[in-house]
Design a protein around this nucleic acid. Sequence first.
DNA 1: ATTCTGCTGCACAGATTGCCCAATGAATAC
DNA 2: GTATTCATTGGGCAATCTGTGCAGCAGAAT
Lengths: 159, 159
Amino acid sequence: MAIDRLDGRIIVLLAREPRIGVLEMSRRLGVARGTVQARLDRLQSNGVIRGFGPQVDPAALGYPVTAFATLQIRQGQGADVRAHLATVPEMLELHTTTGGGDMLCRLVARSNADLQRVIDLVVGFDGIVRASTAIVMENAVPLRIIPLVEQAAEDRDPA
Amino acid sequence: MAIDRLDGRIIVLLAREPRIGVLEMSRRLGVARGTVQARLDRLQSNGVIRGFGPQVDPAALGYPVTAFATLQIRQGQGADVRAHLATVPEMLELHTTTGGGDMLCRLVARSNADLQRVIDLVVGFDGIVRASTAIVMENAVPLRIIPLVEQAAEDRDPA
DNA sequence: ATTCTGCTGCACAGATTGCCCAATGAATAC
DNA sequence: GTATTCATTGGGCAATCTGTGCAGCAGAAT
């Protein structure tokens, strides 16, 4: 589960240049191709690397508005609310969080006006008691993983 | 910027089977290889597809605890706070949101106890007035994009 | 009618992948 | 001390894929 320095370098290299192949990676890292291949296989079966799916930008798709909504759920309705939210395409992510069975979800919309429609879709369900929304103005730090990977590699395998 | 049905099918196919090559995609979709290649190039230069970086699971890396922190910032300290937060590896994502210059960030930690350390790291900075944290219990819906892509494709190009 | 754009089908050389092997080195177990 | 296990190395092989270019065609726009 813990990763060593070489694993870390592989992940970082892959994150920086996703198009790179195993052979080129082995050249850059100065190890044998088989080693890189074995490490990659292990990282994937470990679940550390879930996959290499395309990273799609909702803004470029025509959904430039992002918002986070905190939902308060009626007791016992969690599963129903969850199923309901799963049907909303603009709902990209859903977490249940501490604090009285609340949920936090990430929404996108075509415009601020369209966000109203999305929110109505989301909260227009019986089990949801209250919702409060925060609209994202700027994504100051996009989802990143490299610093954490480097940290994890160093923890396991100090310089 | 808008995507049609074929673009949508390409993205969905790629999301479901990331390892797939252009040639195999063209076979599955019943179009010429050159077409798939041209579409992919266009999607990438459009920015719809940002890249194919590895999707790393923080839990598998040893960071099974996720939390969202809402930060209240002292006026004019936004840039400083942002720079400070960027130095924290456990801070995976940062947004500035509506509501008095607030910020919302995603954090991970090795344990609930370790989360305290991370939060101290985050809020131990002058420009941050107040922070409130919600710990994620369950990631009911992991970050997804397929439903939105399908929606966008149908909007553009009705069945 | 004409131009433009996107798709098709094909071809080619070059590179990469998946897979196999034997040998080496290091760490661990007996 | 010696044996065993495991990861890495360096090599090779066949099969596949990629990048690229080309000509023909159809539909849309001018």
